[in-house]
Measured scan of single mutants.
Amino acid sequence: MQIFVKTLTGKTITLEVEPSDTIENVKAKIQDKEGIPPDQQRLIFAGKQLEDGRTLSDYNIQKESTLHLVLR
């Protein structure tokens, strides 16, 4: 499924993921596309910060959901 990741600069990254993918996994995909190390990434969905060990389905993230990427 496709999800979108919006950065603070207003750029939107499109990722191909599975509901069973972990947040860690998603961060690795963002690193592949954008070169941002996962340890600098914070992903936010519905106002919650997403934890590395959880999966997209844990957070009920469905196709075409938009996550927000904050760098630390």
Rank of each mutant, 00 (worst) to 15 (best):
M1I: 04
M1S: 05
Q2L: 12
Q2G: 13
Q2M: 15
I3D: 00
I3H: 00
F4G: 04
F4T: 05
F4Y: 12
F4N: 05
V5Y: 03
V5E: 00
V5M: 03
V5D: 00
V5P: 00
V5K: 00
K6H: 09
K6L: 07
T7V: 06
L8D: 12
T9F: 09
T9R: 12
T9D: 11
K11Y: 13
T12P: 06
I13K: 01
I13Q: 03
I13C: 02
T14Q: 09
L15C: 02
L15I: 12
L15M: 10
L15P: 00
L15Q: 01
E16L: 07
E16P: 08
E16C: 02
E16H: 15
E16G: 05
V17S: 05
V17K: 00
E18M: 15
P19Q: 13
P19W: 09
P19K: 05
S20A: 14
S20K: 06
D21Q: 05
D21M: 08
I23E: 01
I23W: 01
I23V: 15
E24T: 06
E24Q: 13
E24K: 13
N25V: 13
N25D: 15
V26N: 00
V26G: 00
V26A: 04
K27D: 00
K27Q: 03
A28S: 10
K29M: 15
K29R: 13
I30P: 00
I30S: 01
D32R: 11
D32M: 06
D32V: 11
K33G: 06
K33W: 10
E34K: 05
E34C: 02
E34W: 08
G35F: 05
G35V: 03
P37K: 15
P37L: 09
P38H: 15
P38Y: 15
D39T: 14
Q41C: 02
R42N: 08
R42G: 15
L43R: 00
L43T: 01
L43S: 00
F45I: 10
F45P: 00
A46W: 05
G47D: 10
K48H: 15
Q49A: 12
Q49L: 04
L50T: 04
L50A: 02
L50H: 00
E51W: 03
E51G: 05
E51T: 07
D52Q: 09
R54K: 06
T55W: 06
T55I: 12
T55R: 10
T55K: 13
L56W: 01
L56I: 14
L56Q: 00
L56V: 07
S57A: 07
D58Y: 10
D58L: 04
D58H: 15
Y59S: 04
N60G: 08
I61L: 04
I61N: 00
I61T: 02
Q62G: 13
Q62M: 14
K63Y: 07
K63R: 11
E64C: 02
E64V: 06
E64I: 07
T66M: 11
T66D: 04
T66H: 15
L67M: 05
L67I: 07
L67K: 01
H68L: 06
H68I: 03
H68R: 05
H68F: 04
H68Q: 05
L69Q: 03
L69P: 00
L69R: 01
V70R: 04
V70H: 06
V70Q: 04
L71M: 12
L71P: 11
L71R: 04
R72H: 06
R72D: 12
R72W: 08
